[in-house]
Each structure stands twice: as C-alpha cells, then as structure tokens.
C-alpha cells in the first residue's frame, strides 16, 4: 500500500514538475551499461563491415564518395557566395547577421522501448557539453530535441512524439504554423491552419526559429496532404518528416549562439563530418 502511494506520488511529481530532473540525470548513469550491451550487435556489424569488406567494395564506395564530395563541393562554392550576399543584404536591412551553427556528431545507441513514445538515446552527454533542449538534426532535417542529459548519454525526443510540437514556416512563402507530432513515425500534423492559408502539397516546411528552441531554416517536413473541409474550422495538413527518424544512426547536435562558446574547437572539427549517412550516396540532386 505504502509503496503504491509512493509510486503514484513519484509519477505525479515527475510528470508535472521538474524537481526530479537533477536526480534523474545523476541516476541515469545506471541506464548506460544496458544500452552499451544492447548496442553490441550494431558494433559487431560495424566491425565486421570494416574488417571483411572486399577491396572492390571499398573502391566502389570510395568512388561514390568522391563523386558525392565533388557535387557537394560545387554546391558549397555557390553557398559561400550566397552566404556573403545574404550577410551584405541583411546589413543593408539593418538586421543582425546569421551565425553559422556549431555542431557535434553523436551516435545513436538506443531507442525507447515504449511504442507510445518516440525517443532515442545518443552517446553524447553532459561531459560533451550537451544541454537540455538542445536541437538535434540528421543529415536530412530536424530530428528532435534533448530532453534528458546524463554524464555520458542523453535522450532525444523526436518531433513525431505525440507530446512534441515545434514552430515551422513554409519555405515557399513564409506562412507560419505549428507542427505537432502524431505518434506515427512518418507523420506530423499542422495545427490551426485556416482554410484560406496558402499551403499546398509538396511544400517544404522549415524551422522558423520562433520559440527560441530550434535554429532557423532547417528542413523539418514536406507537406503530404491538405484537406480543406468547409465544415471544419481548420484544414487538416499532414506532413512527412524530412529526417529519417527511424533510420539515421549518426545525428548532429547543434550548439546555439550563446551555448557553443566553450566548445568551439571540437565542434568546428565535427563540421567537416557533415556528410549524408549510409545509403544516401549517389543521388546527385542537382538543382
């Protein structure tokens, strides 16, 4: 009896307050060995890939990576000019410069066993400068934010979790909206979009930076379906996340302007690793 009341009390406290967060981040250490163990098959797979891959496969991969690098470098050349132009134009407008974000590469070591919550565990924690609320990307778009930090690992809540919502805007015309998770790994829903709003299928939604949590301009989702029912107050807009939420194994932690100071060097190093992961090779998306 006493124990169930204590447990209910704990549940209520941890659901509705953040008093227990420091305790959690201390005690969370005991979770790390479990994720270390469950990650062993992954690591064996990686190791055997490294060890037993044939010379020919490696050469082919090398070729593919080189051609991809070439394509990306060409894009980067344009980017440099565009970024400089952007800075000049923003100065003309009298608004502040956009800063380049610092990133840190992290590896996914575990996923939440609970099918009702979408969260993953990564192998970077307090000792790497990770902080609560930090945005997380993969090579394709925004993935989520850090919700729990322990010294050696942290838990990331994905944008599709039914408790998650983030401010976005349509890349084409700047219409703002709130994208909320639905509990399905490949579906987001836009909240309170009126029937007359200019939003179409295929529109790219990027983070708007409102709310001061996520940086501006990272791709979030692509609009998949717009249903305008005159009988309803708002239209139903369904979008598909750009990030590969259930596939990416290497994630990027973004350090905001005020937070990144202490870790400039390692973060700068990590920037050169900003290359799409695994199967994404060989699609020269020329545009």
């Amino acid at each position: 009896m006493f124990f169930s009341i204590a447990a209910v009390g704990l549940i209520l406290v941890s659901l509705y307050t953040d008093w227990l967060d420091p305790v959690r981040s201390k005690l969370g250490v005991i979770a790390e060995p479990f994720y270390w163990v469950t990650n062993i098959p992954e690591r064996i797979g990686d190791w055997s890939d490294d060890t037993f891959s044939s010379r020919q496969a490696l050469q082919e991969e090398n070729e593919a990576l080189k051609s991809e690098l070439l394509i990306l470098q060409r894009k980067l050349q344009q980017m440099a000019a565009l970024a400089a132009e952007n800075v000049r134009l923003r100065r003309l407008l009298g608004s502040s410069d956009m800063l380049q974000d610092n990133v840190l590469v992290a590896e996914l070591v575990g996923v939440s066993p609970n099918p009702l919550s979408h969260s993953v565990v990564i192998n970077k924690g307090l000792s790497d400068g990770v902080y609560n609320g930090q945005p997380v990307l993969d090579a394709f778009g925004l993935m989520g934010q850090v919700v729990e930090v322990t010294p050696g690992s942290s838990r990331v809540l994905l944008i599709t979790d039914s408790n998650h919502a983030l401010p976005v805007q349509v890349n084409r015309n700047g219409v703002r909206a709130i994208a909320e998770g639905t509990g399905h790994i490949n579906r987001l829903r836009l909240r309170h979009v009126s029937n007359t709003t200019d939003i179409r299928e295929g529109d790219l939604l990027v983070s708007s930076g409102l709310g001061d949590r996520f940086p501006v301009g990272y791709p979030v989702a692509e609009v998949e379906k717009v249903v305008r029912d005159p009988g309803q107050a708002f239209s139903t807009v369904i979008a598909r996340p750009m990030a590969r939420l259930d596939r990416s194994r290497h994630l990027l932690l973004v350090f905001g302007k005020d937070r990144g100071e202490g870790r400039r060097e390692p973060a700068g190093e990590a920037q050169s690793e900003l290359v799409p992961e695994d199967g994404a090779v060989g699609e020269p998306a020329d545009d």
């Binding site: 124990f3 204590a6 447990a7 704990l10 549940i11 941890s14 227990l20 959690r24 005991i30 479990f34």
Partner: peptide, 28 residues
C-alpha cells in the same frame, strides 16, 4: 516489496519513462 519497488525505479530510469511508472506496476 522494497526491492521490487527499487527494481521498478531502475526500470523507469533505463527505459526513460516518468519515474514511478514501472515501480507502481511491479508493486501492484
């Protein structure tokens, strides 16, 4: 029951659910 309760807390920490969820389930 104390150990069961503590085990439940450990499970909560490992699974990353609100503290007490599995503790309550296991104790009941």
């Amino acid at each position: 029951l104390t150990l069961v309760w503590l085990l439940g807390l450990a499970q909560d920490l490992v699974e990353g659910v609100p503290l007490g969820q599995n503790a309550l389930a296991l104790v009941v």
